[in-house]
């Protein structure tokens, strides 16, 4: 009996080996049908064996059944895999008969643009928010008091002529700088004060290097123990964040009525790397902002105790920063609103 089983096993083994060889020759689904018929069809060894299972002695019938079915399942699995493979091939073949041009242009979406001046403002705002500042705002039409008087420009002060002013009447004007925000903010808040204030300002000046309206950012820090070294640190941090870590920053003494000492701040020219070129007028330096320690007279206007606190303030023109940062060589481009300019940023 054992022998019978062994013979059967051997026969089935050979059958499977032959099947494995045969299946390699299958090229199409009709080949596959033939193959299936050959090994699982009525005349196949497997079908015949199962059909004549009664020829085996009773006690080995289950074993015979199990053995044959195992092989049958194996073949069925193989055939199934084969069929999937063939289907896939045929599907793939059909797909390949289609045509598709990847090089046709995509469906257009419109790309907009924020104005470059606001991009620069936002970049600077981010830096100061990170340092712990807040953003303050003020009106663009101002009183003489906030624009000049409280900023230490008494009525006959010669510095007033530095800023040609647009007037609404003899007391109301278009602000010539963002500095009035300093006074307005200090009037409403006790120290410590850490603010920056971006906005439009106006001066009666119109030529290649001046537009009657431009944009500034003002900064003000008033607290106990603030000194000139802190001002230097803050503005160096700003300049290097905006223009790059490798830039040199220098402070030159200057004069502003509302700061003392006052400074103008330059960054090293990135075009000539300090050697001197047309952009920096041969000096190797580019002026970017004005700054200084808050003149104690201002504290009188806002009722701060000038013995208790100190502060610094600074202001810069955004157009100038943008020009230097992006290599824009004509100020007028900012307000011509040529779409070819706007779309670049």
């Amino acid at each position: 009996m054992k022998e019978k089983i062994n013979i059967l096993k051997k026969e089935l083994g050979i059958t499977f080996e032959v099947f494995t060889r045969d299946q390699n020759a299958v090229k199409s689904s009709s080949d596959l049908d033939l193959l299936e018929n050959k090994y699982l069809g009525k005349k196949s060894l497997i079908a015949q064996t199962l059909k004549n299972i009664n020829d085996f002695p009773q006690e080995i019938k289950p074993l015979v059944g199990k053995t044959v079915n195992e092989i049958r399942r194996k073949i069925e699995d193989e055939l199934k895999n084969l069929r999937n493979e063939l289907n896939l091939l045929e599907f793939d073949k059909k797909l390949r008969e289609e045509k598709f041009d990847l090089t046709l242009p995509g469906r257009a979406l419109l790309a907009g643009s924020k104005n470059i001046l606001y991009k620069v403002i936002e970049e600077i705002q981010e830096i100061f928010i990170g340092l712990g500042y807040e953003i303050a705002e003020g009106p663009e039409v101002e009183t003489d008091y906030y624009n000049f008087e409280a900023l230490n420009h008494p009525p006959d002060h010669p510095a007033r002529s530095l800023q040609d002013t647009f007037f609404i009447d003899d007391r109301i004007l278009l602000r010539t700088h963002t500095s009035p925000v300093q006074i307005r903010y200090m009037e409403k808040h006790k120290p410590p004060v850490y603010i920056i204030a971006p906005g439009k300002v106006y001066r009666k000046d119109y030529d290649v290097t001046h537009t009657p309206m431009f944009t500034q950012i003002e900064g003000l820090a008033v607290d106990k123990n603030i000194n000139f070294g802190n001002l230097k640190w803050t503005l160096e941090t700003l300049a290097r964040s905006v223009f790059g870590k490798d830039r040199q920053v220098r402070f030159r003494p200057h004069y502003f009525p509302f700061t003392e000492p006052s400074a103008e701040v330059d960054v090293s020219c990135n075009i000539c790397v300090g050697k001197g070129c047309r952009v920096c007028s041969g000096t190797g330096w580019l002026e970017i902002l004005g700054a200084g320690m808050v003149d104690p007279n201002l504290y009188k206007f806002v009722n701060y105790d000038q013995d208790e606190i100190n502060g610094f303030a600074f202001g810069m023109g955004i157009e100038r920063i943008a020009m230097l940062k992006y290599g824009i060589d004509d100020l007028r481009l900012f307000f011509e609103n040529d779409i070819r300019f706007l779309k670049q940023f």
């Binding site: 712990g132 807040e134 410590p192 850490y194 000139f228 070294g229 230097k232």
Partner: peptide, 25 residues
């Protein structure tokens, strides 16, 4: 004094303040 002493000779000092937290409205 500051301008003749030279701004470049006044050392920078980091400004650390805890009193205010930067934020947008």
């Amino acid at each position: 004094i500051a301008r003749i002493y030279g701004f470049e000779n006044i050392p920078t000092q980091k400004l650390d303040f805890k009193s205010s937290q930067g934020r947008y409205t």
